[in-house]
Every structure is written in structure tokens, then in C-alpha cells.
Design a protein around this nucleic acid. Structure first.
Length: 588
RNA sequence: CGGGGUGUAGCUUAGUCUGGUAGAGCGCCUGGUUUGGGACCAGGAGGUCGUAGGUUCGAAUCCUAUCGCCCCGACCA
């Protein structure tokens, strides 16, 4: 039981100037957080209580799923990262210590980094501690601070430089076990989000810099989300746009027969798909091949798409390059022999084919069959280019961005899109890290194998904001019961009177016994301020004790977000309140 | 890192174009009247106008540099 006057809940009437979205404004207005700098926040007493509740529920669900909690350092020797598989890609977002040596009597200071996640720490630890199949599987987790020097922090806690995350790492003897661990975690995540009263849907996701073989993200549907979820409600298909695919290209599509010899024609000034589609050429986008040049680990490679399709850049991650980016015109010309706008991949037209790391084609170009592409000669294109005869494709793959309305891959129904906030992510990693760090075990036939890993994250602080984004109204936050900083607020309208303050204390005690965290607003403020504040900070259950009500022998009980107010005789108040609390607790 | 915007009291801001005593609301302090949905009256404290240079008789205002913050893009839990 806390008294408002002795606690610290600095609420604000006005929204801070630097907040744009509802949840960010409410975080600040309700006194949950205060900003130190971009992406750096103090969790104020009320916000900390929510974080602690989220952490505890997360802990309980992971423990139930077999997780083992530990605590790893946030400061990592840089060597761990240099040894790991993703240093090149991850270093950009990592905070690093000064490497200078002066002043401490050493020729060179050791270099440290602040941990953005902990694969590079847990894997060497497990290598050291676990060597036998008898000790597998194991799933370790921690709940703590993560550091990422985000280029652009955003929306309060939504993308912060320092944030609180649960991260878990599973180690299995074989792939079947790893799949089992993965789906046990998926179930634990679903239980967690259900308990905290948040709608979060699991969607197929790209594995990104983390690597690994498959992955799901947990998305809270919200307009302000950073991600597009492509889905069909009926079939149950849901995927991040980066990963989403469609049945747009039939799997059994036959290869198109050639229609004639490849022929060069002049296209002065026409350097875009649209320009070729216009007069005088009139070549529709779906009759063109689009040739893009990328650099993969320093070597150029080509991506061929249907003319009117867009590249989904994240899908290039499946090609296995550690780092890739679009090539610059200066890099393109020596390889292909032309500037962007006249590029193609027809055999014999590339200036320096040996420089290429590969030619990768999206399946959809098979729909083009015979089409037009750049001649690798500025101002010229080729027609009658046949996919199988004329293009030396290294590998076909899914590289195009899906479009809304295309048939979903599960049932052929039209795909839709909505925005989502990524609050959790699970990866089946495979042996990427265990091989790099030598985390092997010996099986019952004395054979050594790398452990098969999975890794899992829930953004606890981001989830707190996602809850607000999903659950608020014009007056303020509406906390789900399980994560509310306090579940019951007792508003004492005349706190100086012994009968009101005495009754508040008595009812508060009863409510606590029934399982609620209780806040008593005992401030000497006008009623309006107290009601507004109670709504703003979003306490789910409210009792009002005032001398007016006591004259009639009643107190009031109201549920946040509902309109009706129950008047309850003082004599029944304790019992009725306890019952209401038990009911609310059991529902959450 | 590219593009756009912005920095004035604890908070929200006016004033900047067109240089001339820095103004308001909220909050805070004192006194009074109030007291069931962000009260009212009277009085008061609080600002080197992000920072550093420059132009000028004179700079919040014009110029240059620099830093912070916000938004859009590429990345992430």
C-alpha cells in the first residue's frame, strides 16, 4: 500500500514537445519515464513498477518452459565479438570504449564493448561448461539492459539506445531438439503476451544480422509500428514484409520457349522501366527484366527481377554474404560496361563476367519468359531475351517484394497488410555460433558435434510502451490488470477527515489481502485533479471515498475504461471490493 | 549518414520575417475565497533567449560555426 503524497508520480497536464505518438506522450505525462537524452530514459517509480511486473511474468513463463535464469556482464571484451560471426555487421551499432592507453600505466588499454545481445558471451561460456550430451538440452535466459547505438532512436522507448530486454539462448544436441526448444519458447511467448493482456501475433520473419535458419517475430498491431505484416486472416498466414512471399508465381510454371533471336535496339535516354514502357517503345513492365547490381563482401553480384517488381532487400540475406549493399555507378561500369539504365545479364554482354560473385534471379522473371533488358551498352537494350537460353542464372530465389492482393502461399487467398510493433523475436540459429566458438559436445558414441542453438528476445521496455499504445483512451492509459503499476487506487476526497482516511486505510488493507497493489491518493487536491490523474496513470480499479458519499453511507467503485459507477454501502465495501479484485485477478 | 524541422523560465509557448526595456499560460511560493471531473482573486520568485564567434551605437532577432533534440529514409527487441 502506497500513499500518493509519500510516493512520486509527477504527472503533466501538457504533452512534452518532443513526443509525437500517443504512447510516448502518455509515458511522460503519466510520470512513467523522463528523458536523459535521445533514446535514454529514466524509469520513474511508477514506470519501474510496470517493468518489474512485466519482467516477473516473463520470468515465470520462461521458468515454466524450462528456462534457467542467469546474469551476464553488460561489458564485453571486444575479443569475444571479433571471434564471433557477426562483428563486421554488428560493430556499427555497438558502443565501444576508448582504445587509448595513456594514463593507466599500460601501453594499451583493453577494449570493451557494451552488449547489444549476448551470443558472444553465452556460447563461450557453454563451450567451457558443457561437454556431454547428458547435459543437453539447456536454455539460459536473463532480463537486463542492452545497449545499441541506434542511428536514430525513435518514439520514446520504442527504439532506445539503452533498453531492457529478456534474452534467452537454447543449446541442443541435434536439430530435432533445437526445433522442440524453439517451439517451446514460441509457446512461452504466447503465454507471456496473453498474461500481460497484449495482442501479439507471431509472424514469419527474416533472420537479419542474427543469422540462422528460421524465425518468428511477435508483433503488436499498431499504426505507428515500424514493420509491415503481410497476412491473410483465414489461412493464418502472417509474415514480415521482409520475409513475406506469395503464390503469385506458380511453382509448376513451365519454362517459356524462345521467340526469336536476341536483337539490339537503340533506346537513347530511356534509362528506366517506366521510360521503356512509354512511347515510342511501349514495352510493359512485365515484359522487361530489371537488373540490379549489389556488392556482397566486396564483390559485385547481379539481381534480376521482373521489370515492375521491387526488390525486397532483406531477402538478399539468404545469399550468404556477411555484408551487402547497392553498388555505386563507379563500381558498376567496369564490371558490366554500362551505366545504370542500360544494364543486363545476357550471356556475352557483360564486360567482366569473372568479377561477378553470381547472378541471382527472382522466380517471377520466369513469368516474363521472353523480354527486354539492357544491352550493357549505354543507350541500347536487347529484345527477345529468353530466361533459360540467354541468362546465365546462378540461382533462382525469392527476392521480390510481395504486393497486397496477391494470393497467400497457404491457401491462395488475397494478402493484406497492417503495421506492427516488434516486441519479441525468436530465431533458430543452428550451429553458426557454436561452430565459431567451438561449443561442441560428445555424444554416446564418443563423437563430437557442434551444439544446435536458438536465441530469443523480448523487448521488455518496448513492450511497456506497446501496451500503452494498444490500451489507452482520451483520458490516459488503461493498464491491463496484470501489469498495472497499482491495480486499485483509492481516491480520498477529504483526506483530512479521520473517517475518510481511516476507511481508506481499512479498505486498502482488505484489497491488499485480496491480491491487489493499492495506491491511496491522499493529496490535498481538488477532486477534479485526482480523478484526472487516476485516469491518466491508468489504474484499472478505482474506489472513491468522500464525505458526501459517506453521508449516504456509500463508497464508489469504478473500472477504468467503463462508464458505470457502482455505489456500495460501507458495510459491504470490504467484501464487495475483495470479490471484485479476485474476479479481476482470475481473469488476467 | 542523407533530407526536413526546431532550440526562449521546471513544462507548453509568443516574439525572429522588419535589430531598440523578453511576454503569456501551466506549474511553484504567500494570503484569501473555494472543494465530486485539471477552480477563482491578490501578491511573488523564476530567463547569460542551446553554445562560441562575428556584424552593429545596439542582437532572442542578421551572418558563420558548433552542439542537442524531433520527424522522414536505411537498421532493430
Amino acid at each position: 500500500m502506497k500513499y500518493w503524497s509519500q510516493f512520486f508520480i509527477p504527472t503533466l497536464k501538457e504533452s512534452p514537445a518532443d513526443a509525437e505518438i500517443a504512447s510516448h506522450k502518455l509515458l511522460v505525462r503519466a510520470g512513467l519515464v523522463r528523458k536523459l537524452g535521445g533514446g535514454l530514459y529514466t524509469y520513474m517509480p511508477l514506470g519501474l513498477r510496470v517493468m518489474q511486473k512485466l519482467s516477473q511474468i516473463c520470468r515465470e513463463e520462461l521458468d515454466a518452459a524450462g528456462g534457467i535464469e542467469l546474469w551476464m556482464p553488460h561489458v564485453h571484451p571486444v575479443e569475444n565479438w571479433e571471434q564471433g560471426p557477426r562483428w563486421a555487421a554488428a560493430r556499427e551499432i555497438m558502443f565501444r570504449t576508448d582504445h587509448a592507453g595513456a594514463g593507466k600505466g599500460r601501453s594499451k588499454e583493453p577494449e570493451f564493448v557494451l552488449g547489444p545481445t549476448h551470443e558472444e558471451v553465452i556460447t563461450p561460456l557453454v563451450k567451457q561448461e558443457i561437454t556431454s550430451y547428458r547435459d543437453l538440452p539447456k536454455n539460459f535466459y536473463q532480463i537486463g539492459t542492452k545497449f545499441r547505438n541506434e542511428i536514430r532512436p525513435r518514439y520514446g522507448l520504442m527504439r532506445a539506445r539503452e533498453f531492457v530486454m529478456m534474452d534467452a539462448y537454447s543449446f541442443d544436441a541435434n536439430d530435432d531438439g533445437a526445433v522442440k526448444s524453439y517451439f517451446a519458447m514460441k509457446a512461452a511467448y504466447e503465454a507471456f503476451f496473453k498474461r500481460i493482456g497484449v495482442t501479439a501475433i507471431a509472424v514469419e520473419a527474416d533472420t537479419g544480422v542474427m543469422g540462422g535458419s528460421f524465425s518468428h517475430e511477435f508483433m503488436v498491431p499498431a499504426e505507428i509500428g515500424d514493420d509491415d505484416v503481410i497476412y491473410n486472416e483465414e489461412s493464418g498466414y502472417a509474415a514480415n514484409r521482409e520475409k513475406a512471399t506469395s503464390a503469385f508465381v506458380p511453382a509448376d510454371l513451365a519454362a517459356a520457349a524462345p521467340v526469336g533471336v536476341v536483337e539490339e535496339f537503340a533506346t537513347p535516354g530511356a534509362t528506366t522501366i517506366a521510360a521503356l514502357a512509354a512511347q515510342p517503345y511501349g514495352i510493359a513492365g512485365d515484359q522487361q527484366f530489371k537488373t540490379l547490381v549489389y556488392m556482397g563482401d566486396g564483390k559485385p553480384f547481379l539481381v534480376i527481377l521482373r521489370g515492375n517488381d521491387d526488390l525486397e532487400e532483406a531477402k538478399l540475406g539468404s545469399l550468404g554474404f556477411t555484408l551487402f549493399r547497392a553498388a555505386t555507378p563507379e563500381e558498376i561500369e567496369p564490371v558490366l560496361g554500362a551505366k545504370p539504365g542500360s544494364l543486363g545479364a545476357v550471356k556475352g554482354t557483360t564486360k567482366n563476367p569473372d568479377a561477378l560473385a553470381g547472378i541471382f534471379a527472382d522466380h517471377a522473371i520466369r513469368l516474363v519468359g521472353n523480354g527486354v533488358t539492357g544491352a550493357n551498352k549505354d543507350g541500347f537494350h536487347l529484345k527477345n531475351v529468353n530466361v533459360t537460353r540467354d541468362l546465365a542464372i546462378t540461382k533462382f530465389g525469392d527476392f521480390r517484394r510481395v504486393r497486397v492482393g496477391e494470393p497467400d502461399p497457404k491457401g491462395g487467398r488475397p494478402l493484406s497488410v497492417k503495421r506492427g510493433i516488434e516486441v519479441g523475436h525468436i530465431f533458430k540459429l543452428g550451429t553458426k555460433y557454436s561452430e565459431k566458438f567451438g561449443a561442441v559436445y560428445t555424444d554416446d558414441a564418443k563423437q563430437n558435434h557442434p551444439m544446435v542453438m536458438g536465441c530469443y528476445g523480448i523487448g521488455i521496455s518496448r513492450t511497456m510502451q506497446a501496451v500503452i499504445e494498444q490500451s489507452h483512451d482520451a483520458d490516459g492509459i488503461i493498464w491491463p490488470w496484470a501489469v498495472a503499476p497499482f491495480q486499485l487506487i483509492i481516491v480520498v476526497l477529504d483526506p483530512s477527515l479521520p473517517e475518510t482516511s481511516g476507511l481508506a486505510k481499512e479498505l486498502g488493507g482488505i484489497a491488499e489481502k485480496a491480491g491487489a497493489d493499492v495506491l491511496i491518493d491522499d493529496r490535498e487536491e481538488r477532486p477534479g485533479i485526482k480523478f484526472k490523474d487516476a485516469d491518466l496513470i491508468g489504474i484499472p480499479m478505482r474506489v472513491v471515498i468522500g464525505s458526501k458519499g459517506l453521508k449516504d453511507g456509500v463508497i464508489e467503485l469504478k473500472i477504468r475504461g467503463q462508464k458505470d459507477v457502482q455505489k456500495i454501502p460501507v458495510a459491504e465495501a470490504g467484501e464487495r471490493l475483495a470479490a471484485a479484485i479476485r474476479q479481476a485477478s482470475s481473469r488476467s
